[in-house]
Amino acid sequence: MRLLASLASLVVLLFAASLMIGPAGLGFGESLAALFRGEGGPVALVMQQIRLPRAILGLLAGAALGLSGAAMQGFLRNPLAEPGLIGVSSSAALGAVIALQTGLAAAFALALPLAALAGAAGACLLILLMAGPRGGALALILAGIAISALAGAATSLVLNLSPNPFAAAEIVYWMMGSLADRSMTHVWLAAPFILAGGAALFTLGRGLDALTLGEDAAESLGMNLRRMRLVLIFGTAAGVGASVAVAGAIGFVGLVVPHLLRPLTGARPSRLLPAAALGGAAVLLAADIATRLIAPERDLKLGVLTAIIGAPFFLHLIWRMRRVEA
């Protein structure tokens, strides 16, 4: 409980910081007042149309990634699992890339996130077909790897055949992941999917705890593994699909955050779920603030930053784990 309270306060602080920090250089009281002011004006516009959606999306996408990562690791009983494992991220990215390539994204603002959601839904259907009703964790992992590879190849194909170098550059930049220049429309689009997916994943707690003892033991404790698998696939596809749709591919948050918080939750998967959701939100908000502070004029991409910090951090965790096991 104390862990959740501290994580929640951290998220609140970072959310506030995300609202306060930006190139416009607004004063603290001024910007806070502008957030709740009805009428227009440049300060209110910056706060309500630029910083607020950015902070909300950071919160939502981070929570979705952390929560899905914790659920995926719990279900597969593997600390190396991450939310992209079932192919949702790469398929959502493929949908977005197609929207960019065909020019749909330029013609109609919501075409990109909608195409990404369609990609995630496609991956969801495919994985249900391959590993839904029967088959254990291994079938799920292998099907996910195959779908990721397929979506990755298709993305490369689109880039390969792209006649226009500017379109190709735009695609590459988009794939790095970012929360810059998003609107409240993005929030309204992503929020229902992330909230529904999150609500679904939170129902898995008891079953994930029982899965600590293996699939047969969990089943003998009354858990319905088939239902759990469906809920996991749906919840992850909705949450991660929506966050890729609005923020692009952001790696390592879903992998590292559950890993980091596991020792603080007594390693119980049910207690890890809310902690990882809050932790993911905190990490993504912090990383997004960092992109603005480190290189405000260079448009440092969020996904690049999470990977460049996340990967060495993960290596460090593995190094420590290796020492303990040796």
Partner: peptide, 29 residues
Amino acid sequence: RARAVAFLPQGRDIAWPVSVADLVALGRA
């Protein structure tokens, strides 16, 4: 069924470093 029969599978799986009390308490689920 979970209230009628308890089952010890052949594979001795303990996936996460949970405390012994938490692990045994799973039997109460």
